[in-house]
């Protein structure tokens, strides 16, 4: 059997949308985990799915890579139907699952070698590709180490390498940097950026807003299986919180009344006020001059503000 993909240029899919999900529904014995959501991943772009714990991110992408059957809706990947052409689709995608699924019985190199076989990649080509990938993720010096000896960051990088063994057109990453230190996280980001440069489409879930802002061309924020918003990260920030955020710790009653009178949108967390504003220089100056000398801070609005504003601040179970 020959390998499905040569090792030449990356993009083989020329349609506009590499993933098209329409009214995607997933029920677990009556419990609706994904509630008829529709989204499209543009070819060659990075698409993010954000949401609190239990929002339905993993469930959604598991349907995309053909792990979980859908309870309803339609799903096209590479313009193919996942329930019929699952093998063709799966041979052209790479997946990093949320949980570590490296093979602890094998070494670093063997993990890639054995995984390549699942795609029917010939041994010689597989070994060559494995070497290249270990180079790419800077693990070539640990070739023969058992994976159980790797650090968390190394494991995550190896999982990434493993998902690239078949030259995928679409890379699906479920929280690729959770639990990593800043160094490892930045390293993964750089790798992912390099891959996107090569034309690989990426579908990603994450809890890190910084990661989403940096990597995603478009994203959706979902909660309770529903899409809350969709858009480009900067646009979402602009639309939902504006440019700046002023955080006031331990606000007094006068300050509260003052903020109320300014008509700026704000959130009152009791011990903390969060004011969203487009142009804030004057406001910030007035607050610090007239109300509080310290405990008041102005910063650029981030995706995290959007996220918290839309999904609320209560803990999820």
């Amino acid at each position: 059997m020959k390998s499905e993909r040569g090792s030449g240029t990356q993009t083989h899919f020329s349609g506009q949308h590499i993933v098209k999900a329409e009214n995607l529904l997933k029920k677990f014995d009556g419990f609706v985990a994904v509630n008829r959501i529709s989204f499209q991943v543009e070819t060659g772009k990075c698409f993010g799915i954000l949401g609190p714990n239990g929002a339905g991110k993993t469930t959604t992408i598991r349907m995309v890579y053909g792990f979980s059957p859908m309870s309803g809706g339609s799903l096209k990947v590479f313009d193919l139907d996942i329930s019929r052409d699952w093998r063709r689709i799966k041979s052209r995608i790479g997946v990093c699952q949320q949980e570590n699924s490296l093979d602890p019985d094998l070494t670093v190199f063997q993990n890639l070698e054995v995984f390549a076989r699942y795609f029917n990649i010939p041994n010689k080509e597989a070994r060559k590709k494995a070497k290249e990938l270990l180079d790419f993720i800077a693990l070539d010096h640990r070739l023969n180490a058992p994976v159980t000896e790797l650090s968390g960051g190394m494991m995550r990088r190896l999982v990434l390498a493993r998902s690239l063994i078949n030259h995928p057109d679409l890379l699906i990453l479920d929280e690729p940097t959770t639990g990593l230190d800043p160094q490892s996280r930045h390293q993964i980001w750089e790798k992912l950026e390099a891959l996107r440069e090569q034309g690989i489409s990426i579908l990603l879930t994450t809890h890190y807003m910084e990661e989403a802002s940096r990597l995603c061309d478009r994203l959706i924020i979902i909660d309770h299986g529903l899409i809350l918003v969709e858009g480009k990260p900067e646009e979402l920030i602009q639309q939902h919180v504006g440019k700046h955020v002023i955080e006031i710790a331990g606000p007094t009653q006068e300050l509260r009344s003052f903020i109320q009178s300014t008509q700026f949108p704000y959130e009152d967390l009791g011990h903390r006020l969060i004011v969203y504003c487009e142009k804030s220089g004057d406001l910030y100056q007035r607050i610090t001059r007239d109300f509080c000398k310290e405990g008041c801070l102005m910063r650029m609005a981030t995706l995290e503000d959007v996220f918290l504003k839309l999904t609320g601040r209560e803990l999820r179970e």
Binding site: R87, P104, N120
Partner: peptide, 12 residues
Amino acid sequence: QKTFDAMLATPL
């Protein structure tokens, strides 16, 4: 080891 999970993300 989640070995089957990993396999099920491939054409197997």
